[in-house]
């Protein structure tokens, strides 16, 4: 038996919106400690990784570990039937054929219940080793989304250069080229405002990435004020959005081969 309650449906809506463009169906692994999801896009270039800890839910029960295969488009459609402030409960019995999702209004005078069919999803999962990143950029997630949007008007690929001075995003295309530099701030405090950027660096590192994937990652911006971009030579770049007090979404993106 699985039962999990979140006080606000808006959080679950944002989580599903953040991954459904990259992954159409995914296995949700429920265990005593929480929920995990790992899924690659069809082309195996990007990996999405979601972790929600049990203590982030207002109620959480998982009697035995269970994997539920869910079509994310269907999940998203059902979640659209919830008001943002509704409490949401997800429930599945052992060997269930569907996931029960119910919403309760804040006044507790309206309760709706939906069922989404579960599916067997045969997908590859990968082992992600712990890595010592050479550079970690911590920046506003809104700023990240804006840069991705701006760069897409010019090119298809983006180069991220992290140095002690800051982080530079650049692109080029038929129409021309452009770059945006965010200077490193030693401390991120009130004075600097939430838009400031920090770069923790051991060695300068540079990666070239396909912009269309970053546009998908930027859909996680409503979940977190900040995003961290973690870079290491010759390995996928990791983008992390923290989900307040309960976990994170991480996206790993394989770099393009530098020409």
């Amino acid at each position: 038996m699985i039962e999990a309650v979140l006080p606000q449906a808006s959080l679950l809506k944002k989580i599903i919106e953040a991954i459904k463009e990259l992954v159409s169906e995914a296995n949700f692994d429920f265990s005593e400690t929480g929920i995990r999801l790992q899924a690659m896009d069809k082309s195996h270039i990007a990996l999405s990784f979601l972790h929600l800890r049990n203590d982030g839910f207002s109620e959480y029960r998982c009697d035995r570990s269970q994997t539920l295969g869910i079509n994310l488009e269907s999940f998203s459609k059902v979640l659209k039937c919830a008001a943002n402030d509704d409490q949401v409960q997800i429930k599945a019995t052992d060997k269930a054929e569907s996931l029960s999702i119910s919403f309760e209004s804040t006044a507790k005078d309206r309760v709706s219940e939906f069922n989404v069919k579960l599916m067997d999803i045969d997908i590859d999962s990968v082992d992600v080793p712990d890595m010592d990143y050479q550079a970690t950029v911590n920046m506003s997630s809104q700023e990240f989304a804006r840069i991705v949007r701006d760069m897409m008007t010019i090119g298809e690929a983006i180069t991220i250069d992290a140095t002690k001075q800051g982080v530079k995003f650049s692109t080029s295309g038929d129409a021309g080229e452009g770059n945006i530099l965010l200077r490193h701030r030693k401390t991120i405090d009130e004075e600097d405002g939430p838009s400031s950027t920090s770069v923790e660096i051991n060695e300068p590192v540079s990666h070239s990435l396909a912009l269309k994937f970053l546009a998908n990652f930027a859909k996680a911006a409503p979940l977190a004020d900040r995003v961290s971009i973690n870079l290491i030579e010759d390995a996928p770049v990791m983008f992390e959005f923290k989900i307040s007090d309960m976990g994170h979404i991480r996206f790993y993106l394989a770099p393009q081969i530098e020409e």
Binding site: S43, D124, S125, D127, V128, S208, A210, Y252, A254, Q256
Partner: peptide, 14 residues
Amino acid sequence: AAPQRSILSFFGKK
């Protein structure tokens, strides 16, 4: 466009 590597060329399958 530049050639694109796959996640699987970095991380092994479980």
